[in-house]
């Protein structure tokens, strides 16, 4: 059976648009609410990235940190996150879910234990921010055995020699970080420059799906339409914070934002 992540890219391609990937933090601002957000945005999002909150996130900007701290404060644990995924999959079995987090939490759970739990909960892919190539070789192999995509990150600082090696060893989907930034930074390079880098990466092996993330908002998403997929994270976390601060319902507000994002890339 084809991994639902690949199915999602196929479907988006058939509609002549990039796949829309959303990032929300599990347990933000409560277990129930984060599940409801996933359910409500799944109409418009093609792939759901679910953040595993960690309290020393070395690659996340302030918006995602705020979401993560909010979730941790409410006591979210890895087992709760697996339950959120399981509950979501009962609601929409075919929608792909990617967990994104830092390696220490996987390490403490135990690689094998963690992957077994991913499998039984319905996780389709993993992004581990601080487990770069080649350190991730063994772990990526274990993922493959479970038919879970291990998604490699590529950055503007990744040398071309390294890009080739990483892509050669990669699973069907990779993630290109648009610029030198933590998550949530303002786009400090032009979309033209980003697409130039993207196209260069794409050429190495056109069969691999490459998504672009970091700094993408409803203002900029339209300009990057030619990519295989686009990830929006901080803008969504920010919308949750804004909703909470103004005592509005994050579920409806985030749902509206994701619909808007989708309309921009149609």
């Amino acid at each position: 059976m084809l991994n639902p992540i690949s199915v999602a890219f196929k479907k988006a391609k058939a509609e002549n648009r990039p796949a829309l990937l959303t990032y929300t933090v599990a347990g933000d601002s409560s277990k129930k609410q984060s599940l409801n957000i996933l359910k409500s945005i799944s109409k418009n999002a093609d792939i759901l990235e679910v953040g595993v909150p960690h309290n020393t996130p070395v690659a996340d900007g302030s918006q995602i940190q705020t979401s993560a701290y909010r979730a941790i404060k409410k006591g979210i644990k890895l087992n709760d996150i697996f339950k959120i995924v399981r509950d979501f999959k009962k609601f929409d079995k075919s929608k792909p879910i990617i967990l994104m987090g830092y390696y220490n939490m996987i390490f403490q759970y135990g690689d094998n234990n963690f992957l077994n739990k991913c499998k039984t909960s319905g996780v389709n892919g993993l992004i581990v921010v601080d487990l770069p190539w080649p350190e991730n070789k063994d772990f990526a192999k274990k993922c493959k055995k479970k038919s879970i995509y291990f998604i490699q990150l590529l950055s503007p600082t990744t040398t071309s020699k390294r890009l080739k090696k990483i892509i050669k060893n990669s699973h069907p989907m990779n993630y290109f970080i648009s610029m030198l930034s933590t998550t949530g930074g303002k786009l400090k390079v032009s979309s033209k420059e980003i697409l130039k880098n993207y196209n260069m990466i794409k050429k190495i092996n056109p069969k691999k799906e490459i998504v672009i993330g970091f700094g993408i908002t409803d203002k900029t998403i339209g300009k990057l339409k030619s990519a295989d997929g686009l990830v929006v994270g901080s803008a969504i976390c920010k919308e949750i914070t804004r909703s909470l601060n103004s005592r509005q319902n994050p579920v409806t507000n985030v749902s509206r934002l994701v619909r808007k994002l989708k309309n921009k890339i149609k």
Binding site: P132, T157, L180
Partner: peptide, 11 residues
């Protein structure tokens, strides 16, 4: 070891 984001590999 080097458990770092990809961006820091090169520097």
């Amino acid at each position: 070891g080097n458990f770092v984001p990809e961006t820091l590999k090169k520097p």
